[in-house]
C-alpha cells in the first residue's frame, strides 16, 4: 500500500513537471482522445495525427487511446487528466455519444477548445447539459448511401439485397444501416434480411453463409465495414457463387485486391488517416483566436470502385 502511494505521488509529480514544461514552451498543447486502438482504422488515424504533429511542428500532441470500443470510462479519465494538465485543446472521438457530454462540458468551462470528431455527440444530451459543440466528421449515412447506390444502380429495381450491420447501438453502425436503407428505398430494392456481425470477419462469414442458405436468390450484399465484407466474399467463394455483388465501407488495405479483381463492387473511403489531423487543424485555428466552430463541418468521403 505504501509502495502504491509512493508510486502515485511520483506519477503526480511527473505529471506536474511535464505540466510546467508545457507552460514554458510556447507551443499550444492538443490532447487527442481516440477510440479503440485495436481497430486499425483508429490506429491509422493516430499515426496520421503523429505525422501531422511532426509536419506542422507548431503544436504538441498528447494522444490517448482505449482498450476497446465501449470503454468510455478511460475516455472520461483522459479528459479529466487533460483538464488538470491545462491543455489548450481537446480533440475527441467519443466512445459514447451521450456519456461523454458531461466531462466535455467541464473542459469547455475550463476554457479549453473542444473539437468533437468521428462520431457526433447526441443532440438531446448536448441540449440537456447546455453544451454547444460543433461536429467535425464524415457523413456515415451519406457514405453508406453512396455504396448502396453503387449496388442499386447495378441491380436495378427489385434487386434482392441483404445488409450486414455493425455493433447494435453504435452510432456509426446505425448511420450506415440507415444509409443502406436509403439506397434500398431509392432504388426500390428488395431487402431480404439485415443482421449484425459485430464488425468482425469470422462472424460475418458465418452469418452471411447462413443468410445465403436461407435466401439463395440474393443478388447484393451491403456490409457496414470492410472487415465484414471480407468475410462475405470468402463465404461466396466457398459457396461457389460469383454472381453476387458486395459493397463495404472504410477502404482498408486488405480489400484493395478484391475491388481490383471484382470480388467487391465498391467501398467507401472516409480518409480516416487524415481525420484526426484535420480536426486538430480546426482546433488550432480556434486556439489561435479564430471563430468558434458551428454545426457540422463535413469531412470528405469518396466512393472507391475498380474504375
Amino acid at each position: 500500500m505504501k509502495l502504491f502511494k509512493l508510486a502515485a505521488a511520483a506519477a503526480t509529480g511527473i505529471a506536474l513537471l511535464s505540466g510546467t514544461a508545457f507552460a514554458q514552451d510556447d507551443k499550444p498543447v492538443v490532447g487527442l482522445v481516440m477510440k479503440s486502438l485495436a481497430n486499425e482504422f483508429f490506429q491509422n488515424m493516430l499515426e496520421g495525427a503523429k505525422e501531422h504533429e511532426k509536419a506542422r511542428g507548431d503544436y504538441e500532441l498528447k494522444a490517448v487511446g482505449m482498450q476497446n470500443e465501449t470503454d468510455f470510462e478511460s475516455q472520461i479519465n483522459a479528459v479529466d487528466t487533460f483538464i488538470t494538465q491545462g491543455v489548450d485543446a481537446i480533440v475527441i472521438a467519443p466512445a459514447d455519444s451521450r456519456a461523454m457530454v458531461r466531462p466535455l462540458k467541464k473542459a469547455i468551462e475550463a476554457g479549453i477548445v473542444v473539437v468533437n470528431f468521428d462520431v457526433a455527440l447526441d443532440e438531446e444530451a448536448k441540449k440537456e447539459q447546455g453544451v454547444e459543440l460543433a461536429f467535425v466528421g464524415p457523413d456515415n449515412r451519406g457514405g453508406a448511401e453512396m455504396a448502396g447506390d453503387a449496388l442499386g444502380s447495378k441491380l436495378g429495381e427489385g434487386g434482392k439485397v441483404v445488409i450486414i450491420e455493425g455493433n447494435p447501438g453504435a452510432d456509426n453502425a446505425t448511420q450506415r444501416r440507415l444509409g443502406f436503407e436509403d439506397s434500398v428505398a431509392e432504388y426500390k430494392l428488395d431487402l431480404l434480411d439485415s443482421r449484425t456481425a459485430h464488425w468482425e470477419t469470422e462472424e460475418a462469414n458465418t452469418v452471411f453463409s447462413n443468410m445465403l442458405t436461407a435466401n439463395p436468390d440474393v443478388q447484393g450484399v451491403m456490409a457496414a465495414n470492410d472487415s465484414m465484407a471480407i468475410g462475405v466474399v470468402k463465404a461466396l467463394e466457398s459457396a461457389g457463387r460469383d454472381d453476387i455483388l458486395v459493397v463495404g465501407f472504410d477502404n482498408i488495405p486488405a480489400v484493395g485486391p478484391m475491388i481490383e479483381d471484382g470480388r467487391m463492387l465498391a467501398t467507401v473511403d472516409q480518409f480516416g488517416t487524415d481525420m484526426a489531423a484535420n480536426a486538430i487543424d480546426l482546433a488550432l485555428e480556434v486556439v489561435a483566436g479564430g471563430p468558434a466552430l458551428e454545426g457540422w463541418v463535413k469531412t470528405p468521403i469518396e466512393l472507391v470502385t475498380a474504375e
Binding site: 485495436a38 481497430n39 468482425e200 470477419t201 469470422e202 462469414n205 472487415s227 471480407i230 468475410g231 470468402k234 486488405a254
Partner: peptide, 15 residues
C-alpha cells in the same frame, strides 16, 4: 484454421 478459412489474420479475431 481461421487463417486458412478467411485468408486473413486479424488481431481482433476471436473476441
Amino acid at each position: 484454421i481461421y487463417m486458412a478459412r478467411l485468408n486473413i489474420a486479424s488481431p481482433i479475431a476471436g473476441i
